[in-house]
Design a protein around this nucleic acid. Structure first.
Lengths: 234, 234
DNA sequence: TTGGCGATTTGCGCTGGCGCAAACTCCGGA
DNA sequence: TCCGGAGTTTGCGCCAGCGCAAATCGCCAA
C-alpha cells in the first residue's frame, strides 16, 4: 500500500475525525485486494469473515429470492464500506456483492470490528452514520415502490446512478459502468422489456442516449420532472 | 419507576449482557411517559431530542411523501427501541411515530447516546443488532414489493402483524390493536379497496375473520401458502 | 333509541405494464 | 473477415388491480 493511497483514504467520510495515528492502525490491518469484473466480493449466506472498503470500481449488491428472482439492492461506489454484517450483529452476509467492473478493495477480518468500535469512536460513528443513510435509502425505496409508477421509478433509478457514478462526456452524463436493461429492471421491480420501451421513448425525446450496457443522461432536469410525476406522458 | 418494571426491563433483548449496575445507570436516566392513542411519540423532520424504548402498547411508524401519500414503515412492539436517529448520525427523526393504542415508553435525551455507546458496549451492540434487523426487514420489503403480487404482500403483512402483535382467542389469532383496511393498504402499497376484497375472499374461505378495525387470522398456515405464492386463486 | 359518521363492501370499466415471441443489432473471438 | 450469442427492440394480447362511485354496516354519542 503506497502512501499516495494513504492520503486519498484519509479524506474519505468514514475516516473523518480519525487521528492520523489511528488511521494508520486501522489501515495497517487491512489487506488490499483486486476483484476482477463479474467476480464476487462476498456471497449471500456465506460466513461474514471480512468487511470491506471499496477504493476503486463499482460493486453491485443483489439478493436472490427462493423463487429465483434477483433484486438489486444497491450499487457501492468508491469510499463506501460493504459487508459490515458483523457491526450489525450478523454472522453471515445478507446479500451477494459482485464487482461491476475491476475493483480494488481493502479488507479487514470481521473479528477486528469490536476493537475498532471501542478504540476508534469516530470511525465507528461514521460507519453507523453510513448505516443510517442506507436505512433511509431502503425506506425511500419502499416508499417509491409503494407509491410510484414504473416510469417514475426508472427515472429515479437513473438519477441515483448518475449521482453516484456519473461521468461527464460531451453527450451528457454517462453512467460509468456497464449496466443492462435487465439490471435497471432488477433495481426498479419491473421487466427489461418495460425498461427498454421507456429508454426508447426517452431517447426519442432527447432525454437520454443509450446503447448496449450503457446509458447517458442528456437532460437530467427533464428526467427529474418525470421522476417526480410532474410530466404527463405524450 | 417501580422495581417490577425494572426486572421486566432487564429481560429485554436490548439489555442482554448488560450488568445490573449498568442497567440501573441506563434506566435511571430515562423518564417514563404515557402516550395516548393516536398521539405522536415523535414527528418527521422534528429535532431528534430523545430516543425511546416502548414498554407497553404499539406504535405505528409512517412516512409521508411530498405528494400526500402515507406509507407505513413498521409497527413497534413492546421491548423495541425507536427514534434512535442520533445513534445513526441523524439530527432529525426520519418518520412519524403514532401510538396505535395507549402506550408507555421510556425516553432518554439523545445527547446521552455517545456516552452510552462508549460506556455500555453490550447495550450499544444490541442496539446496532436491532438496526441490522431493521435494515434486513427494509430490504425484504423492497424485494416483496418488487417481486410479489398484491395478494402475497397482504398475506405477508398479516403474518408479520400476527407474529409481532398476535393474541390467541377462541376464534384464532387476533391482531392486538385497531387496524383498518386503509392501514393494511399503506403497509403493502395498494388500496383499501383491494385489501377489502382480499379479506372478504379469505373470510369466505375461512382463513380469517375481520371486522371494523380488527383482523383475526384463523388459518395462518393457509395464509402462508398464499404469501409464498404456492396457491392459485380459485 | 336514534342519528350520524367513519369504516367497509362491492360493482364496473379501464389501463399500465407484464408475458410471450420474434426480429434485430452489435461486440468479441476465431 | 465472419460468426455466434448476448443484449435489445418491438408487436400483440391479456389481466391484475386501480379509480370512481354508491350502498351498507356498525360503533358511539346524545
Amino acid at each position: 500500500m503506497g502512501s499516495l493511497d494513504r492520503s486519498l483514504i484519509a479524506g474519505l467520510p468514514v475516516f473523518e475525525g480519525v487521528a492520523a495515528t489511528d488511521l494508520d492502525r486501522i489501515v495497517g490491518q487491512a489487506r488490499s485486494l483486486r476483484i476482477a469484473k463479474e467476480q464476487p466480493v462476498f456471497e449471500q449466506e456465506q460466513e461474514a469473515h471480512s468487511f470491506f472498503l471499496l477504493l476503486d470500481g463499482h460493486v453491485r449488491v443483489m439478493k436472490s429470492t427462493p423463487d429465483g428472482h434477483e433484486v438489486t439492492v444497491r450499487y457501492i461506489s468508491p469510499g463506501e464500506l460493504m459487508g459490515i454484517a458483523h457491526a450489525l450483529g450478523r454472522t453471515t452476509y445478507p446479500a451477494n456483492a459482485i464487482a461491476a467492473v475491476d475493483c480494488v478493495v481493502l479488507a479487514w477480518p470481521s473479528r477486528l470490528w469490536p476493537a475498532f468500535a471501542a478504540d476508534f469512536p469516530s470511525f465507528s460513528a461514521n460507519t453507523y452514520k453510513a448505516v443510517g443513510g442506507r436505512l433511509q435509502d431502503a425506506h425511500t425505496r419502499v416508499i417509491e415502490m409503494a407509491t410510484e409508477q414504473v416510469e417514475q421509478r426508472v427515472a429515479h433509478a437513473l438519477l441515483k446512478l448518475v449521482k453516484q457514478a456519473g461521468r461527464k462526456t460531451e453527450e451528457g452524463i454517462l453512467i460509468d459502468f456497464p449496466i443492462s436493461r435487465q439490471d435497471i429492471a432488477e433495481m426498479t421491480g419491473t421487466t427489461l422489456h418495460t425498461v427498454s420501451r421507456l429508454l426508447s421513448a426517452w431517447e426519442d425525446q432527447g432525454l437520454v442516449k443509450s446503447g448496449r450496457q450503457k446509458v447517458t443522461v442528456v437532460e437530467p432536469h427533464q428526467l427529474l420532472l418525470i421522476a417526480e410525476g410532474r410530466v404527463e406522458k405524450s
